[in-house]
């Protein structure tokens, strides 16, 4: 089923901004949300200002605002990626144990994370390549993955060598078991549901071509 080489060009799908816009559109107004480091951070750019979505950052803040402009930079106010940010009206600060209790206790509606791999069951691998010469670092990934009520993943569907990152079983070290509920990719949006992996949206690719790329049984939900 897997095609790793083809004479035809790989489908291009949507770009990172369009993907971030897709995720943002699916975040209900008023949600408490944590955006992971990297690609997920872009989602903030597409949340409507009147949506009332409140951003949580693991290092002890609710109500995080956009990245700080040069004149606003305050070394005491950073996000999970250690980038200087701003605070919005209604923001609050709390210590690290409270911040992770907030996560683990199911008080955050959604977290959005990047991934190396997601399995058909919703297992997530996103913290370590497993290569022996890599220095491992986990941060808050494991707490977020299992703590938020819903975990969304954002990633390119295919790795650089053309292999699908939605897999029957993760081969990279796991971050959490059965924790991912949706996978947003440049080629399709997948819902991890009891009936299986449901394809909700396609971006510049036909359903049959998608099934040829992914070595996981899919359910066509595009007409729902």
């Amino acid at each position: 089923m897997t095609t790793t080489s083809s004479t035809s060009a790989l489908p291009t799908g949507i770009d990172r901004d369009a993907l971030a816009r897709q995720v943002a559109a699916d975040i209900p107004a008023g949600s408490f949300v944590n955006l992971g480091i990297g690609l997920p951070t872009k989602v903030a750019n597409f949340l409507a200002p009147d949506s009332g979505v409140m951003l949580h950052t693991e290092n002890g803040m609710l109500g995080m605002g956009p990245e700080a402009r040069a004149e606003e930079v305050d070394p005491d106010l950073v996000n999970a990626g250690k980038v200087a940010v701003s605070e919005l009206p209604g923001a609050s600060y709390f210590h690290h144990a409270d911040s992770f209790a907030m996560m683990r206790g199911g008080h955050l509606d959604i977290c959005v994370l990047g991934a190396y791999q997601v399995s058909a069951r919703g297992d997530l691998a996103n913290w370590h390549t497993g290569r022996p010469d890599d220095i491992p670092a986990v941060g808050g990934a494991m707490d977020l993955a299992i703590g938020a009520r819903q975990t969304f993943v954002m990633m390119n569907l295919l790795s650089r060598d053309g292999r699908a990152k939605l897999v029957p079983e993760c081969t990279y070290p796991l971050t959490g078991l059965q924790c991912v509920s949706r996978v947003y990719t440049d080629l399709a949006v997948f819902l991890i549901e009891p009936e299986g992996v449901v394809v909700r949206d396609l971006f510049g690719i036909e359903y049959d071509d998608l099934t040829a790329l992914v070595d996981v049984p899919l359910v066509d939900g595009t007409g729902r």
Partner: peptide, 22 residues
């Protein structure tokens, strides 16, 4: 120091680290 083997590392998920200290 880590690559030279001069320092041991115990890696702990951030929330577990915080809660263990708490």
């Amino acid at each position: 120091k880590y690559r030279a083997g001069e320092l041991e590392l115990e890696l702990v998920p951030q929330g577990n680290l915080a809660e263990r200290i708490r």
